[in-house]
């Protein structure tokens, strides 16, 4: 089962790796509302086709890949919405909501497992397809591309938002192709990409290797513990929201510059989980210690959204989708690389091999955070206006 689980996960990740960059250009042409709506609806609705073929066959694996493509295509759209709907000093609050994906992971275990046990696997697919269909109806009724297009905003609110966001910063304005040469030679863009890679590598190692470590070395099946399996994910989301609000507040009060705030959050989201991964392989005989520090690492990783992800919209609001698309491509590559390292590095489950896998992830987190500290930025780059 483990090999099959890896294959399904791997194909989904390949989808999320290929989709974001093409999607960022498509989103600039047709608008983020359509792309985000189609991405979420497509990934959920495809679940309804799984029961028509054999589960865990190449048919199912192909569906997982396409679901990954749909899911990966949604990321640039979110950053375009952030750029066109939120003033610069309120964007981290919105971007921190992206961590709701983590709550979705927890809900899959919390709701999905009893449902599969009671009504079978197929019921999970029908539930997902129905929920996404209902969501898509709400999405198309309620959401618009920008404050200018929203029918229920008062004139006062619309004027306030347009004044605060500033001229020229909207999703529609991103239609001209990005200045690729200047974008790809921009150090802050690569800082975002590298830090996203590190973040995803760390998260994948925490979710795959640390949970497996608890299971095989301590006999503690975290996924069957109702509280401890969901606590880290909800904590991650709440921490992300808190970091987002706090960082917007301190930037609004001019207590710290945006660049300093982003770097401080990368320090929290990368160095702390890195330190946890470094020590978790040496954590004695009681499973309570590794389980507690695993939870702490997942929770503080919530700072990623208000740190690295928000930096992608800071550096180029007009091309936020493209910069975030590039970052998410590197992020998916980090998740894939971590999955391969975990799979290949844990043959035989020797103490040395666990420590090696954890150590590699800790190094990647520390290295990518150092790169961000050196070349990351929270300032709008000149090529944003080209």
């Amino acid at each position: 089962n483990e090999g099959l689980d890896f294959r399904l996960r791997e194909m989904f990740l390949w989808g999320t790796l290929f989709a974001p960059l093409p999607s960022s250009r498509l989103t600039a042409k047709v608008g983020p509302v359509r792309i985000f709506g189609i991405g979420i609806l497509g990934a959920g609705a495809l679940a309804v086709f799984v029961p028509f073929g054999a589960w865990f066959s190449s048919y199912h694996i192909t569906i997982r890949f396409v679901q990954g493509l749909f899911t990966g295509s949604t990321w640039p759209a979110l950053h375009m919405l952030a750029a066109s709907w939120f003033p610069p000093l309120q964007r981290s609050g919105f971007v921190s909501c992206y961590s709701a994906v983590s709550v979705g992971h927890a809900m899959a275990g919390l709701l999905g497992t009893p449902l599969v046990l009671a009504l079978g696997r197929d019921s999970l697919c029908y539930l997902l397809a129905t929920l996404t269909l209902l969501w898509a109806m709400g999405w198309w009724i309620l959401v618009r591309e920008s404050p200018a297009e929203h029918p229920r905003l008062s004139d006062e609110q619309r004027r306030h938002l347009q004044r605060a966001i500033g001229p020229g910063l909207s999703a529609r304005n991103a239609v001209p192709p990005p200045p690729w040469r200047r974008l790809l030679s921009s150090l802050p863009v690569w800082a975002c990409a590298m830090a996203t890679l590190g973040s995803h590598w760390g998260q994948a190692t925490l979710q795959l290797a640390v949970t497996k470590y608890l299971m095989l070395v301590y006999g503690f099946a975290l996924r069957y513990d109702r509280v401890l399996s969901v606590l880290p994910h909800f904590g991650h989301f709440l921490a992300a929201l808190t970091f987002g609000r706090v960082v917007d507040h301190v930037r609004g009060q001019a207590l710290v510059s945006t660049t300093t705030a982003r770097k401080l959050l990368v320090y929290i989201s990368h160095f702390l989980p890195g330190a946890v991964l470094f020590v978790v392989g040496y954590s004695g005989c009681d499973p309570a210690t590794p389980a507690a520090i695993y939870t702490a690492a997942v929770v503080v990783s919530g700072a990623t959204a208000a740190g690295v992800y928000s930096s992608a919209v800071d550096v180029a609001p007009n091309f936020a989708g493209t910069v975030f698309g590039l970052s998410q491509t590197f992020g998916a590559a980090g998740s894939l690389a971590a999955s391969y390292v975990v799979k290949e590095g844990l043959h035989g489950s020797l103490p040395g091999s666990w420590r090696l896998v954890f150590g590699v992830a800790a190094f990647v987190l520390a290295f990518t955070a150092t790169v961000f500290m050196a070349i990351g930025s929270g300032s709008v780059q000149p090529w944003n206006y080209s």
Partner: peptide, 23 residues
Amino acid sequence: MVGMVVLGLLLSGFVERSASVAL
């Protein structure tokens, strides 16, 4: 809009983990 984005991402996370749950 924020609420709909959160719900959408929640569903996205659910879909991502659904295969492991079914397994």
